[in-house]
Design a protein around this nucleic acid. Structure first.
Lengths: 197, 197
DNA sequence: CTTAATACCAAACGACCGTTTGTTTTTTCT
DNA sequence: AGAAAAAACAAACGGTCGTTTGGTATTAAG
């Protein structure tokens, strides 16, 4: 990022964070390609060229947002998991925290789920690595459930797919993220049989 | 689409279909915004301007692909469902057909899942309507399972979310689409408890 | 108070975008 | 064979894109 090693602390009025916030807000809403550097500049009262003082390219800016998104959602999930008692309670806490970040609390987290790595070939490797790094948490949480080994992988993929899919149909005036998380997890806990219960 | 009513049958060498195929292939791979009219022209040995004889705009082209995608995947799913015996077998057949189209058999179907309506504001209403039209099938299939009413909605959303999520992690050298479909559905059928099974 | 790095502005660069316009080729139908 | 419609070409239009370059306030440090 920084071309030369900084010889001095950054200024107080540094707008790098403001820039990241605005970009995350726009990108999570419109998508990466539909958000231009000029859009981001307008949202931060900055000329588009000035953004390049903070980020070397549009891809680098996206990667920074992705990294921050993973950092934030991981932090929240880890905190929630730590307060859980048994493995299933811990997984449930993780799902709730995941969806709360994804649906209401963090534009950064939204970017991570919304922008596909394949959308940005030049950055896809880094983006995929960041995603995998986060999802590793769910691998461990599910491993703790003591399921037969063959079922773990699909349990994880099914759960994450269903949770992330909520981004397409979630409406603020509908069920809360926490409620959705518990209901989705419930779909995996209670059998989908023909019984009427 | 056609400005004037056609007074004569279209030509034999009509390349409209070729155009749709190429566009679907590019868009499902790179996304809508990352695919330019010039890319599509190049893939069809056509000048970019010539595309406008067949489609009024890039959005209209996308809508045509979406519509064709829904038509094809719906046709396949309907056929598979018709051969199912009990409600659960019918749902399973639908899941298998859905994933086979989505993962290997149809670029058109891939576009429907990959391109979010919100990515293209000018067409989002039509795209959403087309999606809903298709997903209605799963609503009916799940209604036939005789689940308690409160669980149906989340069963559908969880199932479709998990299936569509497979597009992100599917690899041709891994499990087959049919296998994946059955395993994902299996996650909803067999409880995710602490028991070792 | 000077100095040098920081953080921006102002203005443009070339490339590419979706699209339009006028013309020409190709095909079908009489 | 001739006329008309269909389907393409050729060339550009204005606009926007990501990015670069050179200059200028602002600010922290000595």
């Amino acid at each position: 990022m920084a071309a030369t090693a900084p010889t001095r602390a950054p200024r107080q009025d540094n707008r790098r964070q403001h820039l990241l916030d605005a970009a995350a807000g726009l990108i999570c809403q419109r998508g990466y390609h539909a958000t231009s550097m000029r859009d981001i500049g307008r949202a931060t009262d900055m000329l588009p060229g000035s953004i390049y003082y903070h980020f070397g390219s549009k891809e680098e800016l996206l990667i920074a947002i992705y990294a921050e998104g993973v950092r934030r959602i991981a932090e929240r999930v880890d905190g929630a998991v730590a307060r859980g008692a048994d493995p299933m309670k811990r997984l449930e806490a993780a799902c709730v925290a995941h969806l709360e970040m994804l649906l209401t609390d963090s534009d950064y987290a939204r970017v991570v789920v919304r922008v596909l790595p394949e959308d940005v070939p030049a950055a896809s490797t880094r983006l995929t690595a960041l995603r995998d790094d986060y999802e590793e948490r769910f691998r461990k949480l599910i491993a703790a459930l003591a399921l037969p080994r063959g079922r773990r992988r699909y349990a994880r993929l099914t759960l994450l797919g269903a949770l992330n899919g909520a981004q397409t149909w979630y409406r603020p005036d509908g069920d809360s993220p926490a409620h959705i998380a518990r209901r989705v997890l419930g779909c995996l806990r209670e059998p989908l049989g023909v019984e009427t219960q």
